[in-house]
Amino acid sequence: MPDTALLPRSVLHDRLRPGRQGAATGPAGVVIREKTGLTLAAVAALRGRDGAVIAALTALFGVSPPTRLRLVRDEGLAVIGTGPGQWLIAVDPMPDGSRDLRHGDLTTTLRDRLGGLAAVTDQSDAWVVFDLAGARVRDLLARCVAIDLDPRRFEPGDVALTRAGPLDVRLWHGPKPGRYTLSCFRSYGAYLARWLTDSALPFGLELVETR
């Protein structure tokens, strides 16, 4: 039997120059790191089944899924509200980069638990996800998205579905204050990365190499 397993590879592989760039004095104002190796699954409750889906997800993960555009995190797992009756489940990779299999194959497990209640789709290789940090991170985001980023309005744990120029993006804050996660569909990942890295140059950029 030939081994047909496909290895996921970052869309940024060989496309961007990692390291310290732009304004060179002082520490980098913005640190950008691509998050790879995430396991992602989308859950959309069938009409009128929201309550049952919330109960099933709570039983499975031990955290109660947000009913607004918020996220909850628990030990390497995030449940992200992405609209009424819709959630994205994100599981961090293991420290060695391999998939965290504590819930088995995530999509299969969710389909087993949510049969007849929700539509479940594997999204693991569908999104490019950037971790954004640094003292000037909100100045960088202000160049990309037209939402109020003041932490009193966009609090840690808040999620926004919006636009960055022509792209639909998902942005969430934290839960650690001042840390943001920005994602878009994979095929636009290189475009968004170029925009982010160019926009970050005046603040001093540290682009962390993607494995």
């Binding site: 009128g48 929201d50 309550g51 049952a52 009913t67 009424p84």
Partner: peptide
């Protein structure tokens, strides 16, 4: 306002 009412467990039996 949203065309569909906001999600609520009360809709479950509808």
């Amino acid at each position: 306002h949203a065309v569909l009412p906001a999600s609520s467990p009360a809709m479950e039996d509808a």
